[in-house]
């Protein structure tokens, strides 16, 4: 049960996007459509799992002083693998994500998990942690993207919802992304504060 907690924490309590607020650049940039969000989320999750496994495996060989460069090399390798795979098997997705695929390498979530978790913990726990974080990142992305796509282009996953709705372009452009995430984080803060105060009252 305790091991399972490593998986669950990424989804809610330590959600990378809404709680720790890491890796925001891709979150906002690619959340213009749900399709992009799913693509980006799974790419990041793959890199997270791959690098977490590897770093956890070699954590005892790598001297403390050179660990950051080593982590970066391992992460960059997985990012490039994703980049090449995506170009080969999902060219359209690779086009619409553009430079944000290589940018996973500087996504603070990945290096953050390497530093805070997988460099200290055994492989199995690291995998669960990575899966939880990856999934937490993906659902946060999908949530932001659904709001933006629905309001900004009047569609969901590419299917037009209503022909009579003139979508405000604003939502799909940069300001809409910042507004959505600001309000969502506020909402999360509100819910978590409320559940906390309830616990202390009871």
């Amino acid at each position: 049960m305790k091991v399972f907690g490593e998986f669950i924490k990424g989804l809610w309590r330590e959600n990378p996007t809404f709680r720790i607020m890491l890796g925001l650049c891709p979150t906002l940039a690619v959340s213009t459509s749900v399709e992009n969000a799913i693509g980006m989320g799974s790419a990041a999750a793959f890199v997270l799992v791959g690098s977490n496994i590897f770093i956890s495996l070699v954590r005892k060989i790598i001297p403390d002083k050179v660990r950051i460069p080593c982590f970066i090399v391992i992460i960059a390798t997985f990012v490039t693998i994703v980049e090449l795979m995506m170009k080969a098997y999902a060219p359209l997705l690779s086009r619409s994500l553009g430079i944000y695929v290589p940018l996973i390498v500087v996504n603070c979530i990945v290096l953050g998990r390497a530093e805070a978790f997988s460099s200290k913990e055994p492989v199995f726990k690291s995998i669960l942690d990575a899966l939880g974080m990856g999934l937490g990142f993906t659902w946060a992305l999908v949530m932001i993207a659904s709001i933006r796509e629905l309001l900004g282009s009047g569609s969901l996953l590419g299917f037009t919802i209503s022909k009579h709705f003139e979508p405000p372009l604003f939502m799909i452009l940069a300001p809409g992304a910042l507004l959505t995430i600001g309000l969502l984080i506020g909402m999360f803060n509100h819910f978590i504060a409320r559940s906390r105060s309830r616990k202390t009252d009871g």
Binding site: L173, A174, P175, L178, G182, I185, M187, N189
Partner: peptide, 20 residues
């Protein structure tokens, strides 16, 4: 600012207006 909007959330809202 409402308590839940303090710090990061309100910063995003301000950034949104700047971006606009």
């Amino acid at each position: 600012v409402p308590r839940c909007m303090k710090d990061a959330p309100i910063t995003f809202i301000v950034a949104s207006l700047m971006s606009l």
